[in-house]
Computed example of a mutant assay.
Amino acid sequence: MSETVVDNPAQNRFEMAVDDELAVVYYRQEGEALVLVHTEVPQALSGQGIGSRLAQGVFDLIRASGRKAIVRCPFLAKWASRHPDVDDLVVG
């Protein structure tokens, strides 16, 4: 169980493999920003904090890439509101 978040630009999503499941955040590119539109965590992984670890990894990758995030996903918006360390990444 590696739980490393990776960017899969061919699929327009960030992915985190957990056991035999895949948690994902879908996005679209708008200029230099990524619009985070939807998060999916498989039901089998629900309640284990997978979504929060996925969110942290996504924002870490966005920071490392020098991009910004436009958060349209309600889950990620709520997560970001509880993590002021990512405020500088969120635009729009």
Rank of each mutant, 00 (worst) to 15 (best):
D88N: 11
H83S: 05
P74E: 03
L76R: 03
S46T: 14
D88G: 13
Q48W: 13
S46V: 12
V86A: 02
G31C: 04
S46C: 13
L76P: 00
H83C: 05
K78M: 15
E40H: 13
P74V: 07
A44W: 05
P74S: 09
L76N: 02
D85T: 01
S65R: 06
Q48L: 07
A55L: 11
R67L: 03
A80D: 02
K78C: 14
A55F: 07
S81K: 10
V86C: 00
G47A: 08
S52N: 14
K68L: 03
R63V: 06
H38Q: 12
Q56R: 11
V90K: 07
R53G: 09
D85G: 05
R82D: 10
P42E: 10
L34K: 09
Q48I: 12
E32T: 14
I62R: 00
H83T: 03
C73I: 02
A44P: 08
D88S: 13
T39K: 06
L45T: 08
S46Q: 15
E30L: 13
L89A: 03
D85W: 05
I62K: 00
R28P: 14
R67A: 10
L34I: 12
G66C: 07
W79Q: 00
V41Q: 07
L36A: 00
P84Y: 01
L34V: 09
Q56G: 07
